[in-house]
Amino acid sequence: MNIFRLAGDMTHLASVLVLLLKIHTIKSCAGVSLRTQELYAIVFATRYLDIFTSFVSVYNTFMKLVFLGSSFSIVWYMRYHKAVHRTYDREQDTFRHWFLVLPCLVLALLIHEKFTFLEVLWTFSLYLEAVAILPQLVLLQRTRNIDNLTGQYIFLLGGYRGLYILNWIYRYFTEPHFVHWITWIAGLVQTLLYADFFYYYFLRFIGGRGVE
């Protein structure tokens, strides 16, 4: 564990806590894409299948349970909790996110590190996470203005993988044979997709007004 990875995990944890805070306290999911949340639930479900078979550390297992629990409860809230569901913007959240799942699965079957069931699904979760934010970014474009909590959520979610990139650079130089091209490229693509969001987000900070 290094400071970059810890900062990345804490940033990721903060993003799900901000979203849960927004949904649970003000009972609103305005501006949040249910489709992105569904994709993230699939990402964690397919990435953490090894939670029962390989124990890394208490921290690792604990965080996996937190991410699994939070992603599925956010989907449940947005789908079935009547007060929250009422604030869900169904008409605007129309990105065909299921069209992202199949290409990621095919790509994982073609490009992976080991051809085993767990490893292919793990690789699938990497590819899917790289594009999972697309429905949210499209929804952002359509709803123009978003509240601060949603803006913070997206900022933290984009930032965590950026910190992971620093972690991979650090590990590459400090650990022999630490080479994971698939993880690195997927993580880079994922972070680059946030580029224009980060641009407008920092403009907001400079301009001191809402995220336009």
């Binding site: 990875r5 090894d50 890394v56 690792n60 590190e113 080991k114 490893e119 080479v179």
Partner: peptide, 10 residues
């Protein structure tokens, strides 16, 4: 490819 040890990252 390096032999990927069990994934120790989240």
């Amino acid at each position: 490819w390096s032999s990927s040890q069990s994934h120790d990252e989240l």
